[in-house]
């Protein structure tokens, strides 16, 4: 069973991302801000690109340390700015969906990053890597960082879970009646941004997005309560991670598309199950009524 050992670290990485992303996914679907994760990832990338350029301007020796301190600080700064803007612009005065604001931030951040990194060659490769990630080659150090962030953010959301659930449930209403709504909204986006930055660095934008949306969609279709939603989503995510990593190793194909395909199949089966149940209910109803 050498292959199990080989996929142990990536599997733990996937499971950590699944744990936190299913939770955030249910929030995000309810708020209808589906693409916030991709937007935050590109805003963070823009931040680290700006930081990298400034770092190289200050240091003539051009030491190419990809994850330097300054780029990280800058990506955190950009994420807090974006979180602040998203918090402010969810306002009844603004008659456009927040998703539009998020989408524009995504487009601007990505194109600005391209302008900044234009000088460097191999931009295509960079884009491809950022999309797909390299979770099979995750290092122990990366895994530790991810675990620390996931545990801190997870614990924070667990302690204040009622607050966050109420915040999301009343997201589409003008008067939420929640004290310091702006502060909590900001904390929601910022904590999610922290997770996205670490997760995308390891697994790539696409896998992280898949873990956010697909299992949570399944749980929204199949169940109503928060706790059962979480369990359904987690189960789907765990099965897909395990089977996906194993298959990708056996078939020698990239892991991201395999995991997504499996998640997609699970979602489709879940949808069919829901349809069949509905159909059965209707059949039962007709003779009774």
């Amino acid at each position: 069973m050498a292959s199990i050992e080989f996929i142990l670290l990536p599997l733990i990485g996937c499971l950590l991302i699944v744990m936190i992303n299913v939770y955030f996914g249910i929030h995000v679907i309810k708020r209808e801000i589906i693409f916030i994760d991709i937007a935050l990832a590109s805003i963070a990338a823009l931040g680290s690109a700006v930081g990298m350029v400034l770092f190289e301007m200050g240091h003539e020796n051009h030491s190419h340390e990809p994850h330097g301190f300054l780029p990280y600080i800058f990506s955190m700064g950009f994420i807090s700015l974006a979180s602040f803007a998203f918090t402010l612009l969810r306002n009844k005065k603004i008659s456009i969906p927040l998703e539009a604001i998020i989408g524009i931030a995504y487009a601007v951040a990505t194109t600005l990053t391209v302008i900044i990194l234009d000088k460097g060659a191999g931009g295509d490769v960079h884009v491809h890597d950022m999309l797909v990630g390299t979770i099979l080659w995750i290092s122990g150090h990366q895994l530790t960082r991810l675990a620390v962030v996931v545990i801190i953010v997870g614990a924070f959301h667990f302690v204040y879970r009622k607050k966050f659930v109420r915040l999301t449930d009343s997201f589409h209403e003008n008067d939420t009646g929640i004290k310091n709504r702006m502060l909590w909204d900001f904390l929601f986006y910022f904590s999610f941004g922290l997770v996205v930055v670490e997760a995308v660095r390891i697994a790539g934008i696409l896998t992280v997005f898949a873990f956010l949306i697909l299992p949570a969609s399944l749980s929204v279709i199949l169940s109503g309560k928060w706790i059962t939603k979480l369990i359904v989503g987690w189960l789907a995510g765990i099965v897909a991670s395990f089977a996906g990593l194993l298959l990708s190793l056996k078939l020698d194909v990239p892991s991201a598309p395999v995991i997504i395909t499996i998640l997609g199949i699970i979602l489709l089966l879940g949808y069919l199950l829901y349809k069949i149940n509905n159909y059965k209910k209707q059949i039962k109803k007709i003779p009774g009524s």
Binding site: I29, E32, I34, F35, L131, F209, I213, L214, G264
Partner: peptide, 25 residues
């Protein structure tokens, strides 16, 4: 409507990109 349409778009996007990556091989 169970899922917001934007979520369905997200799923379509994700699966299409995943498939494209597989075919790219």
């Amino acid at each position: 409507q169970l899922l917001p349409q934007e979520a369905i778009i997200g799923i379509f996007y994700c699966v299409a990109l995943g498939m494209a990556l597989l075919l790219a091989e």
